[in-house]
């Protein structure tokens, strides 16, 4: 396993495009957290996002993981390019001839996905902990380390999404088309979900189907945190169900398995 990870790391470390995307990702990561801690002085208005309670423990775990997860698209580009370049340079073929098995090839990519997701999770943990310690109103140890489950679901959300990219990458091969397909999928899922929601309002049937869609399943791993926030809660008066249920985690895990296995199946069946 370590050897496969080393092989993948060797491929990535000299790739300039990969390095640029990683730098952009981590810059955005930090700039967003910095942004929210800046105090705005717009004439009369003195506003600091951090004072609205978003950095309070344990709420910060939910809030930060939700927004940091949006940035995953930059890491997804790295994942997509690490598949598509293997096809465009025909290096996948060469790797196999040199003695890597098809299974090892997919595993090396999957291990890298785990590594990237883990790095991102550790980072969000450290950044959130730091911001929380500075801005949080509550600093008791047991409050700080409560609701840490969001870190776990954040990690799973990234792994599931990148596995989806891995599958599309192996299937479609060309990075531009993969990104296109990802977008089309996202729109299609949105439309179907919209129709289902509409039906729910019209006939009073609760929409239980859309949670099984892959992207929706990933969304359900960290639901929007805003309705939990004090000011929003008081203004709209409705609280969405933002709890995460065990079966939602299971759905995401099953999708991850399907994507990785599907990628292996495609590559195994194919002549190169």
């Amino acid at each position: 396993m370590l050897n496969l990870l080393q092989i993948e790391f060797h491929k990535m470390r000299y790739n300039r495009a990969t390095k640029i995307f990683l730098i952009i990702y981590f810059c955005l990561f930090f700039s967003i957290t910095l942004f929210s801690s800046i105090r705005f002085n717009l004439g009369e208005i003195n506003f600091q996002l951090a004072e609205q309670g978003i950095f309070n423990f344990p709420y910060i775990w939910h809030f930060n993981t939700y927004f940091a997860a949006i940035l995953k698209i930059f890491l997804a580009l790295v994942v997509i390019s690490m598949i598509s370049t293997e096809y465009s340079n025909q290096t996948l073929k060469q790797n196999l001839i040199d003695g890597l098995s098809k299974k090892e090839f997919i595993l090396s990519k999957f291990y890298m996905i785990i590594a990237l997701s883990l790095a991102s999770t550790i980072l969000i943990f450290l950044v959130s902990l730091g911001l929380g310690l500075i801005f949080s109103d509550f600093n008791e140890i047991n409050i700080i380390f409560s609701e840490m489950g969001y870190l776990g679901t954040y990690f799973l959300k990234l792994v599931a999404f990148f596995s989806f990219c891995l599958f599309l990458g192996v299937w479609i091969k060309r990075s531009a088309f993969v990104i296109g397909a990802l977008f089309v999928w996202w729109v299609a899922e949105g439309i179907i979900k919209g129709i289902l929601t509409f039906r729910k309002q019209k006939y009073g049937i609760k929409d239980q189907i859309s949670q099984f869609f892959p992207l929706e399943a990933m969304n359900n791993l960290i639901k929007e945190p805003l309705t939990k926030l004090g000011i929003v809660k008081s203004s709209i008066g409705v609280v969405n169900d933002v709890n995460i249920y065990w079966y939602q985690i299971l759905i995401a895990l099953i999708w991850t398995f399907i994507f990785v296995w599907g990628a292996y199946f495609l590559i195994k069946k194919r002549d190169l």
Binding site: N3, I7, N15, N89, Q90, Q94, N95, I97, D98, G99
Partner: peptide, 29 residues
């Protein structure tokens, strides 16, 4: 395949790596 050596039609390597870096990767595989 790890005990043999093979080249097929077009030479396939990572264009962004140097010769030595490419060969290091082959050694790892």
């Amino acid at each position: 395949l790890k005990k043999i050596g093979a080249i097929i039609e077009h030479p396939n390597f990572y264009p962004y790596m140097t010769a030595v870096q490419n060969l290091e990767l082959v050694c790892k595989i």
